[in-house]
Design a protein around this nucleic acid. Structure first.
Lengths: 192, 192
DNA sequence: GTTCACCTTCCTAACGGTCGTTAGTTAACA
DNA sequence: TGTTAACTAACGACCGTTAGGAAGGTGAAC
């Protein structure tokens, strides 16, 4: 009970202050316990961080996948485009995604290896999932310009991340401004 | 002399470890002086950070502008596309760009306001510069699909940042993979 | 049904270490 | 003579971590 609360609180602090900037003192205070009590649940700061990370990746991996599954009945464009809005709505209350974005780009130096080993499978899985989605959809809808689905998926990921990180730092308006600007161009380049 | 050396060294440390993660001790050691000697040049860590930031923004603002000026004789596509390669080459030895990217997305919490006030004009200026470039080029080349040059510039910035941040974290290969994937699609969506 | 050992979870106190910062001093230089 | 830039020493604050103990629950032994 307190352990998962610790996980969630730590997640939020790491997302906002980074690994070095987050303090066990403040995390414990947010949870409502004293700092040393954290050690009843985790070996130390490293384990807390890596546990939070594993937890966030596992949860969000499923979470992202279910979005694309739940929009199977929509057109490909609606599904891909809608993902941006869905993600925006998610992120306003989903600290895990912010956390993942932050530590993906700027992992703590001393845990770089461990972070990479956890993150890479996550994005690889997302990439594979998208590639498969594009291939399957194109078989029925036949609207993509190129059949290099892996590249298309990677391009899509690049555009989403470019706008998402904008959201993390500059907020909703900047995010939507970017999306409005980039989507028509990207989609026009993607289809026949 | 030592002051600018401090600025450069601090820049590198902040880029690699973030504000909280960077230590004055290590910065001083890299420069070859003792930690308190920093205070002969800067009021403290905050001023060192903000000075480094101002310096980096000023330098890179000019640096980015000169690229687009120096490629005036090339086609628009060559100029825009070449920027990615240019940036890649730059970034391998240009800590200032890495620094700017990092603190743009994840500024130190306690200096968030100051960072935003410095960063926003930088990106605004870049955006305006690109918008003007697109408008001027399109007057002669007439190859863009839409005349909403501001949106086109913003979309271009989104794509560049999406790939650039990929470079910061995942290195050259990932960067080039992304660029190869996203550029044909983006360009196809941009022109008639 | 009571007792006893054990484990979990929290606590207080304190550790060694590093942090950014300040005071006070010295040598070089204008 | 005053200023600059470096130094040593030391400050208080906070860092992550450990030791040791109190409270509560669980479960087996009697």
């Amino acid at each position: 009970m307190k352990a998962t609360l610790l996980l969630h609180t730590a997640l939020r602090h790491f997302a906002q202050h980074g690994y070095e900037g987050a303090s066990l003192q403040e995390i414990a205070q947010d949870v409502g316990i004293k700092k040393p009590s954290i050690y009843a649940h985790f070996r130390g700061k490293d384990e807390l961080f890596l546990s939070a990370m594993t937890y966030a990746l596992d949860t969000q991996k499923i979470h992202l996948a279910t979005y694309f599954i739940s929009t199977r009945h929509l057109s490909l464009e609606q599904s891909l485009k809608g993902f941006f809005e869905w993600f925006l709505e998610e992120s306003t209350q989903n600290d895990q995604l912010k956390f993942i974005l932050r530590i993906s780009y700027f992992p703590p130096v001393k845990l770089e290896r461990e972070v990479t080993d956890l993150i890479n499978p996550f994005f690889d899985s997302l990439h594979r999932h998208l590639t498969r989605l594009l291939r399957e959809r194109d078989r029925t809808e036949q609207l993509l310009f190129s059949d290099d689905y892996a590249s298309a998926a990677l391009a899509y990921l690049t555009v989403t991340e470019g706008t998402m990180t904008e959201f993390v730092y500059n907020g909703v308006e900047a995010y939507q401004r970017r999306f409005t600007a980039v989507w028509p161009i990207f989609w026009r380049g993607l289809v026949r």
